[in-house]
Design a protein around this nucleic acid. Structure first.
Length: 742
DNA sequence: AACTGTAAACTTTTT
DNA sequence: GTTTACAGTT
């Protein structure tokens, strides 16, 4: 919805004016949800509620920022201010609570937030301590099981009590070990931020009272995507005054896989007996034909309350389905459409390309680049996933939290300092017996513990560097001028040796890495400016405390945060990341069974319905133009396969224009055996690893012929098309290769 | 201890 | 097709 819409519908008015008591707003796509929420906040403040007493929770930083901005502008006109208003993501809000109260639930307020990679390495060591076969327990799947538990507010103790079978007991054991490691390292993972906050609110009366006294009005956006733990957090804070307003749409619930509990929204009236429910059904975003397509699709969901969708706008353009030969043609067709619309006067920033999985972005990016059409991929997290950035961040994290062993391990030998696996194992042993963190142990190493002189010197030098950084980081003097955080970051990048490591002119890649490190310094600088502006009245004590805030910010970025509405470029992103956004033109790529719906959802109806909702979310992002594409053939993981058109297209036929633009044949055989034709029984061939051998047998099959080859090392059965065999002529033997003996 | 190369796994979606 | 993990080499 446009911000300048000043006239509200009756339903919108009702929602805005309903300030006291529980309220559920069922907001369909494009129904002015954000307008209602921001107007409501402005209303409260104008009615005399202190901004400080209002809490609004969103799912991405981007959404929070937008909400803040809009409230600010609404209030500007009336002479009120919004200083002290809390608009935050659930995770960032919980992080702040734990910064205040953390010592009561996790024994510290200066914890580090672990990302997925950190979690994995913590889990790896956890599994090791459990005497379980690590080949049977993959860190990722154990973490997934624990995450599911945490989203249901099941902590370690509860999980242990409830575990009955071998599987459950094994997970419980690893949950305990993992939790111990996190506690030892003063670390929390994403789910912990929610879990520990909920535990705090349940068990600590003082903390709960403090929060419920402060936040007299609570608002939650995208309520259909909250999990049980989040429900408990909001519910505890609002339990006394009961001024809770939640906004959501069951049809747009797309995070059940992450623990989102749709019953939060469905059972709202049960939880809050006196609660009011206001449906916002009229769509002000999309033109008629687009809404028709969305309606045709979503009505196929059985587990759903049927509701009429109607738009206030004209019919507009009919959405179209483009059937193309391959992913390359798909990308081409989308770029061509973008160019056509640009000529019609549509700005690029009003266009988006959506897809089910990130892997699909590659081909699209190539096409946009080749055609010279500006584009941005919404991957805010990508920067922080880079190796060199992770390393720099680890140095910084260790500065703020000396107990962070995961960070320590990642950097103790990067750049190489002559501290290898053996030395690290010894150090871990020493730390274990002394009950200290790894960094704290570095000064205690001696020769009779088995450490080499080289290792001892390197470790001592390492800890001396840290000591120096800490001394300067704690001094208030270095905070006199702006840029103190950036200075600290720059200094760590330089003195850690990372700068030098990537300065060695070894290739293009290293130059990129160096630039990325520079970018990290500017990110710190930008953060500092933003932070100073937002906290102008508060006096920050030291560069280290700024660093704390910066690292927290870094840990909680999301892909959607990277979307910059001001840029003149097409946005490429996953369907999930598109939630809450809108564009004049939307293209959705890869409408194929197995992709959308994704293959992991094909066999369970509830998951299939979530895929359908995901597609529905994508479609309803479009204001004026909608284009869906389906490729007859798609190469995934290096293998090209024929595809089946998505059932979702079938469900929308009649509402859409079908179009086939096949300039290349799609019905070609799956394997082109051309290069392998002259390999027959008796041929001499060379394999990269097995060397030279003689072909014993060839079984021709349409996809993947099997060959039996007698190598020096023994008989091997290989797939002809993938073995990458090189035909060896007898004349080659004289060139120094000794012929195999049989 | 550090580097190099090859096999295996990998892909949903995210704070 | 890409990344990671491990094994083998210097």
């Amino acid at each position: 919805m446009d911000a300048k819409t000043s006239e509200l519908t009756e339903a919108q008015h009702q929602a805005v004016d309903h300030t006291n008591g529980p309220l559920l707003v069922l907001a369909g796509p494009g129904s002015g949800k954000t307008t209602v929420v921001t107007q409501r906040i402005a209303n409260l403040i104008q009615g005399g509620v202190l901004p400080w007493q209002i809490l609004a929770l969103t799912f991405t930083n981007k959404a929070a920022q937008e909400m803040r901005d809009r409230v600010y502008h609404l209030l500007e006109k009336s002479g009120c201010h919004s200083k002290g208003l809390t608009v935050s993501t659930f995770h960032a809000f919980c992080a702040r609570i734990l910064r205040d109260w953390g010592d009561r639930v996790i024994g510290t307020t200066s914890f580090t937030i672990y990302d997925t990679a950190d979690q994995r390495s913590a889990m790896k060591s956890a599994i090791k301590t459990c005497d379980l076969d690590s080949s049977n327990w993959r860190p990722a799947s154990v973490l997934a099981a624990i995450s599911t538990a945490k989203n249901k507010l099941i902590d370690v103790d509860t999980f242990e009590q409830e575990a009955t079978d071998f599987y459950g007991k094994s997970i419980a054991k690893m949950y305990r070990a993992y939790d111990n490691i996190l506690r030892e390292n003063d670390a929390v993972d994403f789910d912990d931020l929610l879990l520990h906050t909920a535990r705090l609110l349940e068990n600590d009366i003082e903390a709960r009272q403090s929060l419920e006294d402060r936040y007299q009005y609570v608002m939650i956006d995208e309520y259909q995507d909250t999990n049980h733990t989040q429900f408990v957090i909001a519910n505890k804070i609002a339990s006394n005054h009961r001024n809770i307003c939640v906004v959501g749409d069951p049809d747009q619930s797309i995070y059940a896989w992450r623990g989102a509990d749709i019953s939060n929204i469905l059972d709202f009236e049960e939880h809050y007996g006196e609660g009011t429910v206001i449906p916002l059904g009229r769509n002000f975003r999309s033109t008629g034909k687009i809404v028709e397509a969305a309606a045709a699709l979503i009505k196929n969901n059985v587990q759903r309350k049927d509701k009429k969708l109607h738009t206030e706008l004209d019919d507009g353009h009919k959405p179209k389905v483009d059937t193309v030969a391959s992913e390359h043609e798909e990308a081409h067709a989308i770029v061509e459409e973008v160019k056509r619309l640009r000529e019609d006067g549509l700005p690029l920033k009003e266009m988006a390309v959506l897809y089910r999985i990130n892997a699909l972005s590659r081909v699209l990016e190539d096409a946009f680049r080749d055609e010279g059409v500006p584009y941005v991929v919404a991957r805010g997290t990508a920067f922080y996933e880079r190796k060199e950035i992770k390393q720099a961040i680890s140095y910084l994290r260790l500065l703020v939290n000396p107990k962070d062993n995961v960070a320590f391990i990642r950097i103790i030998n990067t750049p190489t300092r002559g501290i290898g696996g053996t030395s690290i194992a010894r150090l871990e042993q020493l730390a274990y017996t002394k009950g200290l963190a790894l960094l704290e142990t570095t000064t205690m190493v001696t020769k009779d513990q088995g450490f080499t002189t080289r290792a001892i010197n390197a470790l001592k030098k390492f800890s001396e560097t840290y000591r120096q950084w800490l001394v300067d980081g704690r001094s208030e003097e270095s905070l006199t001028a702006a840029g103190s955080l950036a200075d600290l970051v720059e200094r760590v990048v330089r003195e850690s040796g990372l700068e030098e490591l990537y300065s060695k002119t070894s290739g293009e890649e290293d130059i990129d890495r160096l630039q990325n490190l520079e970018e990290l310094v500017s990110a710190a600088s930008e953060f500092e400016q933003r932070y100073d502006a937002e906290h102008e009245n508060e006096k920050t004590s030291t560069p280290l405390s700024l660093l704390f805030a910066f690292l927290e910010n870094v840990a909680l970025v999301s892909d959607a945060d990277a979307i910059d509405p001001e840029n003149g470029a097409v946005t490429l992103m996953t369907l999930h990341a598109s939630k809450g956004l809108e564009f004049d033109f939307v293209a959705i790529a890869g409408l194929e069974d197995g992709l959308l719906p994704h293959e992991r959802s094909l066999y369970e109806e509830s998951q299939m319905e979530e895929e359908r909702r995901l597609c529905y979310v994508g479609i309803t992002r479009a204001r004026k133009h909608l284009m869906l594409t389906t490729a007859r053939r798609r190469t995934q993981r290096g293998i090209s396969n024929r595809t089946i058109e998505s059932r979702f297209i079938r469900e929308m036929t009649g509402v859409m224009t079908q179009q086939k633009t096949e300039t290349e044949p799609w019905d070609i055989p799956d394997v082109i055996p051309e290069v392998t034709n002259d390999i027959t029984v008796g041929s001499m061939v060379r394999h990269k690893r097995f060397g030279v051998g003689k072909v014993q047998r060839v079984i021709r099959r349409p996809r993947g012929s099997t060959v039996t080859i007698h190598f020096q090392g023994g008989v091997k059965h290989l797939v002809l098309e993938y073995a990458n065999l090189e035909l060896v002529r007898s004349s080659d033997y004289s060139a120094g290769n000794s012929p195999p003996e049989f």
